[in-house]
């Protein structure tokens, strides 16, 4: 299990989010310490994506705060740009830049946001592409890759900015089953290297094996947050048990 110290890297405080009149998130609180892997599980429509998107302000918060290294992000960072480079994001649908090669996908953030030189950015990009086994594909365009390959490039793109934490929203849900493994393998590897991650997933075996904490989201609240041993063996909340039972039957 990962080492934790006392100051959380990231803290979500009393997060509320409404779309119009509908309140989707009803007061979310949790902390992420450095090196932790937190898996978020829950029914479809329960608010998992909204929650993770609020963390890097792809959604504006209705109320509450996101704190990074103890400080409210909206007070501390005049521009969200810098904060967002520290909080990488991997999407379910990859969202690679279709007009760029694999290499350019992984350098554009470094050159445009971090203002690194082109050569340094490319060397760095190459390092992370190597890490996800895609270094041989630097000249390919996204539409020439398989889903698993796209997602690996998307992970390299996020890593190339050397973030402190990686957010992933169902990174394997859009993949054909034979490609899920290759992406999960990369995620396991990152976890083993101590990468801090916040992952929305339906891969229960992954959550059970890799997570340091599992969050069960139910109708916009955190119904349970516990280490996987407890969540999967003896959940404290009966809704968790219900969800996991249904999930197991559905398989």
């Amino acid at each position: 299990m990962a080492m934790t110290n006392n100051e959380p890297l990231l803290e979500v405080k009393d997060l509320h989010k409404s779309f119009g009149q509908r309140e989707i998130l009803k007061g979310i609180n949790f902390k992420v310490h450095k090196g932790e892997v937190i898996c978020i599980i829950g029914k479809s429509g329960s608010g998992k994506s909204t929650m993770i998107r609020c963390v890097n302000f792809l959604e504006t918060l209705t109320s509450g705060a996101i704190c990074y290294q103890g400080k409210n992000v909206l007070d501390e960072f005049k521009e969200l740009s810098l904060y967002r480079t520290k909080v990488g994001m991997v999407f379910q649908s990859f969202n690679l830049f279709n007009n760029m090669t694999v290499l350019d996908n992984c350098t554009v953030g470094q050159t445009k946001v971090l203002r690194k030189g082109k050569e340094e950015a490319q060397q760095n990009a190459l390092k992370y592409l190597q890490h996800v086994g895609m270094a041989n594909y630097i000249n390919a365009k996204p539409h020439q890759l398989s889903g698993g390959q796209k997602q690996r490039v998307a992970i390299a793109r996020a890593l190339a900015l050397e973030p402190e934490i990686l957010l992933m929203d169902e990174p394997t849900s859009a993949l054909d089953s034979e490609m899920v493994g290759e992406v999960l393998q990369i995620m396991r590897q990152l976890a083993a290297e101590g990468m801090t991650m916040l992952i929305v997933t339906h891969e229960m075996a992954f959550a059970r094996d890799v997570a340091s904490q599992v969050i069960f989201v139910d109708e916009g609240i955190i119904a349970e947050m516990n280490p996987p041993e407890i969540v999967f063996k003896a959940p404290e909340n009966e809704r968790t048990a219900e969800f996991l039972a249904r999930f197991n039957n559905g398989r």
């Binding site: 792809l58 521009e79 994001m89 999407f91 649908s93 990859f94 793109r157």
Partner: peptide, 13 residues
């Protein structure tokens, strides 16, 4: 829109 979001998520304006 996903591509715009991805760009914003890596810090682009």
């Amino acid at each position: 829109d996903g591509q715009r979001e991805a760009a914003v998520a890596i810090g682009m304006t």
